[in-house]
């Protein structure tokens, strides 16, 4: 009886195991293979060492920097929004969360093109500014535009985990804190913030990882002036046909992400074991 149910339980995991092997483990092995071999298939470290040029380092550093900024901005915007949503009625929460994810229903390319239309020098925003007799602002092809694109695209991934933690927050704890002498600000810093830490960490992960590896946003909103790792990797596969170098970049990016996550997990100490 017990044995049978155990076998069933194990069987329930098989689809996922098969999925993981086919679509996660196997591709990873391919990436490793290409990263550490040359065009003839011989082992080499040259792909990795060749990344140590200033031009590539600049790309890595810029990606890291943009992703970091986008994540921080997302967190600053998402935290109060998620808190506000969690304080509304259950029915309102459902609707508001749906509205948060609504932009994701549109295709990613269309969303990015829409931002181009908005931000261009002769775009919608500047046209409006001019009609109001105000100075037009140059926005497209700036780091601002690229980071804006990232924030816009990845904000829901910050709001949703934050909201899911906050909606489970026991309101009596907040009442108890004010009973014991906390003002509104202290309730936030001493109760809400520490108790939503796991949401903050998964939110950061879910925004930082896609931000650092994103491509296309920078090409369209940055006008090709701000190459990111994702764009560089794409070029190796699509234009340069240098699979080995592309794989090496992917490998380094992966290491970068793992290190970032490890640093964050260290800061989240005991109750943060959510990711990686």
């Amino acid at each position: 009886m017990n044995k049978k149910s155990n076998i069933l339980k194990q069987a329930a995991a098989y689809p996922h195991i098969v999925w993981s092997v086919l679509f996660i483990i196997a591709p990873l092995i391919f990436v490793m293979y290409y990263a550490f071999t040359d065009k003839e298939g011989r082992f080499t470290l040259e792909n990795i060492t060749s990344l140590a040029q200033p031009s590539y380092l600049e790309v890595f550093l810029r990606s890291l920097c943009f992703a970091f900024l986008a994540t921080v901005i997302c967190l600053i915007i998402a935290y109060p929004v998620a808190y506000f949503i969690s304080k509304t009625s259950p029915k309102a929460q459902k609707i508001l969360i749906m509205l948060v994810t609504l932009p994701q229903w549109l295709n990613f390319l269309i969303r990015t093109y829409s931002w181009m239309a908005l931000l261009e020098d002769t775009g919608i925003i500047n046209t409006i500014l001019e009609s109001l007799n105000m100075q037009p602002i140059h926005m497209i092809n700036t780091p601002f535009a690229v980071i804006l694109g990232m924030v816009y695209n990845f904000l829901p991934y910050m709001i949703i985990p934050l909201h899911s933690v906050m909606s489970k927050l026991d309101n009596r704890l907040l009442v108890a804190a004010s009973d014991l002498g906390c003002n509104q600000f202290q309730v936030m810093t001493r109760i809400v913030l520490p108790l939503s830490k796991s949401g903050i960490i998964s939110g950061i992960t879910m925004v930082f990882v896609p931000s650092i590896s994103t491509f296309y946003i920078s090409q369209k909103l940055g006008g090709g002036n701000f190459d990111l790792i994702g764009d560089t990797i794409e070029r190796q596969f699509q234009t340069a046909y240098n699979y080995n170098l592309g794989a090496a970049m992917s490998f380094v990016l992966m290491i970068l992400i793992v290190i970032s996550m490890a640093i964050m997990n260290k800061y989240s100490d005991e109750d943060g074991g959510v990711i990686v």
Binding site: V175, A177, L195
Partner: peptide
């Protein structure tokens, strides 16, 4: 003193 204690879990 609250009904279900409302102790701070963290």
């Amino acid at each position: 003193v609250f009904q279900k204690y409302a102790l701070f879990p963290h």
